[in-house]
Design a protein around this nucleic acid. Sequence first.
DNA 1: AGCCTTTGACCAGCG
DNA 2: TCGCTGGTCAAAGGC
Length: 803
Amino acid sequence: MITASISKYPSIWIKWYIGKLNENQKPFLLLPKPYNFVSKLVNFHADLIYNCIVCIFSPFYSLLSFASEFFHQETKYTAVESSELHQQAHHGGGTTTTTTTTTTTITGLFFKKLGLGLLSAAYLCIVLFLVLIVATVLGVCLVKLWVEEPVVVRENVHFDYTEENPSAVFSFDGGMSGFVGRTKRNKHISVPVGHMFHVSLLLVMPESDFNTQLGVFQLTAELLTGNGNVIAKSSRPSMLRFRSSPIRLARTLMMGLPLVLGVSDETQSIIVDILRHKEEYRRTKAIRVTMHPRSGTSSLPQLYEAQIMIKSRLPWSKEVVRNWKWTFYVWVSIYVYIVLLMFLLCCYRRLLFLVTPDLFGRGGELPREEPPREHDESEISELLRKLRRRRRNKRKAISDHDDDGDGVEETIVGSSGETINTEDVTGSVPVEQVDEDSGSAMPSPTTGSFHWLSSLPLDQGNLNDAPDSSLKFKNNATLADPNPLPPYSASLNQVSSNWHMVKGGNTDCQSIVPVLPPIDFSFPEEFSKGQNAKSIESRSFNDVKMVNCSLVNVNKVEMMQISHSDEAGDESTLPKNVTLGGDIGRQPVMEKDQKETLLATGVVRTSEDGYNWRKYGQKQVKGSEYPRSYYKCTQPNCQVKKKVERSHDGQITEIIYKGTHNHSKPHLGRRASGLSTDEMSDMGEAGENYAKLEGSGWKNVQPGAKDTKHGLDWKADGLERTSSTSVVTELSDPMSTNKGKPLCAFEAEDTPEHSSTLASNDGDEDGTTQALAPAEDDAEDDESDSKRRFSGAVFGGEEMLNF
DNA sequence: AGCCTTTGACCAGCG
DNA sequence: TCGCTGGTCAAAGGC
Ligand SMILES: [Zn+2]
């Protein structure tokens, strides 16, 4: 009953609710105690849900209650009339006709009112429903906006075997270009920021003798920005799974029929998980995969096809939201709904409660709906007034007739169940209305809560206002009910519990988490033992199974020789241009960068990269079995740092750069010359333009030195190169002004810096040239600078990566 | 002498 | 607040 009466006045009720809400929200902010917080939160949510439901059904409630109330009133009226009639019959004097007419008019009015009530209810329902729909749509949209779907891409890539190191570029911007110039447009994909994505390559290789003999080759994946800068780079070894000849024979026998029929092929699919990377604000625009032959060899595997697979995983928070998608839909929708309702209530209340409140009596404290109280209200009040007047007249007649005191009369009337003490005593609540109301609709709420009613000025004196005031009184009584809450809270618990159940149900039916398929990565024979296995294991990539070590020694021998061949390969790769999908063809600078990276990574040697570094720390970091060394660029005012993890034998497992150099690479003359030939080699590689031309001769010169050095290194440990390495650049250096900006911004950034960087670029390239021709000059740098600007200003920032 | 590495101490962020 | 961890400092020593 109370809920019904409350729901009778939605606006008032909602106002109360808002008050409660505010009340509840304050503690949210003020009370940090988790205990209270949680309980309040639960209560609050339960409140919200219950309120939503009540809001939706409030029109029906109000309609029902109104109808019942009206029936009560009518019966009461008729009862009163009949009793009076009886009395009149006793005393003679008939007004029966008038009473019947009034009752008929009242019923007519009732229907009128009922219609209006229906109308208003329907209207309110529609409005609420619309709001609900809008809220749902908004909620779902919001959740979807916040939680992106993980990106899963699987695309064919094509290696360009005309290059010495075949590479394939997959571009997020659409399509990929394997061969230069061949692009195919795809839909635009991009990995949202914050996603951790894995890049793996699926190679379908014929089980040919050639491939079997080939053994290990190296796959390198580089994440490129739109400018062609390398964000991250990592390389993994790969090879055909080993099958000894008996096994192969058996397989062939077993699969003979399908093989002959062409149903199956003698192929192996190898999945190499090359790179994992967390997407940052430096967006990845393309991924380039390059194949490098094992050091000491130059042959590359035969491929049927290659597919690049990119799978991204959402960050933890979003992952949770995604798994609980439907729950979040519901909750966000509810919140949006509440907010919309509040908004409507605050700004367009009249729109929302166009008709309803007026019918049920204006809530005295609501300053709003004055205008709509018109015809019906006045009519009904008029009628009631008439009725009352008539009754009064009758009573007067009766009293005159009986010549009794007023008190008697009233007690008589009161005996019919209504308390009439004060009709004559002005200044208190008009009596009859109280009677009627209390008799009809509100038996209990009137008790004990009247005290503040007397404070209402409305009730003073005026009898004509009686109907209104009575209505008002009723309202107030409802409102004044000292504890409107208990029924709610009681039902709240129910609601909330139900809710939780629903929630649970929802959660059950969802949660499909994309799981990256485990990739089996096994290195059979011929895969050199030592570091390959080590590094891979340490990086917790995939299992490395050393099947057969018979060839290890051979490999070792090869390893001794490798470095030049690798370098040769690197250098040779340098000059080639691969067009990014939709992008400008990569610039030589980028190539150089990658080259250098490659040098540092794919083939693990020293970390020489053309810059001078001072080691300022070494730490054994957790999770990595090798110590991590911290280096800082020795150039004054250059804050670039790098972290290098290398195994005992000096092979680099991981390099992470931080910041960007604000200078060019130091040239041979200084310290670099004194160091090692590695540096020279790097420099030489840096000059990619000449790499091809002079690569061989240069290489010839270099390798010797390198050989000696590397040979020594390896000899020291008796191990070979690392097979898996990764290089990451971080632009997050606080010192570098370029932090977090797209590389294009470099140019516009700060002119002195930039010019210097540009100079550095050119300096580098020139440096390489200069490395060949020892004369080095700033003027030359500038000159090359100008050249470069003409050629492709877009890539101006590339050098910043200083690999 | 200058530069580098080594290495323990120190510090800041985080759970 | 404490302990852990990664990053840096700085003294000491080597080349
Ligand atoms: Zn620097």
